[in-house]
Nucleic acid binder design. Structure first.
Lengths: 109, 109
DNA sequence: TTGACAGGCAACCAAATGGTTGCCTAAAGT
DNA sequence: ACTTTAGGCAACCATTTGGTTGCCTGTCAA
């Protein structure tokens, strides 16, 4: 499990919004993921490649198209690393509270 | 809350090991954090600057030294973003299981 | 079988990043 | 007062990174 690949993959805003897109609708093709984006298909393809290498996205070929699925496991491992076992419940409640406070406004990223 | 700063701060292995160091012992000074590291003090200082800007580390000046503390909240927010409310329990159990399998060996990063 | 469509590969470019060195400020210790 | 110690600031350098364009492979439909 290559930890570094996960963090570097998450470092880019375009890749994060790709994950958001898959979180909203799982199993999209490359061209579907390109929709609404300004950059070229090849750019998106590269990003997906990094996300796959980091195991954040799993891809399945079906005929000539490729379906992409979000894999939440590496993300859960991040939280596991720096949040103490006993701290966890407290911090998660705090986060839920904060996001509820902020959500009425918007704040996408 | 600048999300991008958080992810970019986490993207670097040196910065992640700084967080590890603070997770092991909270409230360290710059020079303490430099111990055992190969890079220069200024490099570490820069890294800490990014971690502070991302709000992953909170620093308090005491006299001429500066104490650094790990803040787990932004990390919890990451998990919140891509792990569905109902998926969470399942994924966390899976991660706990996987890390238990891997832990006997070592695998530091 | 010919054309259109989904995607991959490689070369290339501008910008950001991690690191260095050198010098500066401020708080303690003697 | 002088020196040491903790840390900050700025300029600079090599490498990486995100993006582009151009071309190639494979699958489906007419």
């Amino acid at each position: 499990m290559d930890t570094d690949a996960v963090f570097r993959a998450l470092a880019d805003p375009s890749r994060r919004s790709l994950l958001d897109s898959l979180f909203a609708r799982n199993g999209q093709t490359l061209l579907e993921l390109c929709e609404g984006l300004t950059m070229s298909r090849q750019a998106v393809s590269k990003h997906l490649g990094l996300l796959e290498a980091a195991n954040l996205v799993t891809a399945v070929r079906r005929g000539r198209e490729k379906l992409h699925y979000l894999n939440p496991v590496p993300i859960a491992q991040i939280a596991d690393r720096w949040i103490g076992k006993f701290e966890r419940a407290r911090v998660e409640d705090l986060v839920a509270f904060k996001t509820q406070l902020e959500s009425p406004e918007g704040d996408t990223e």
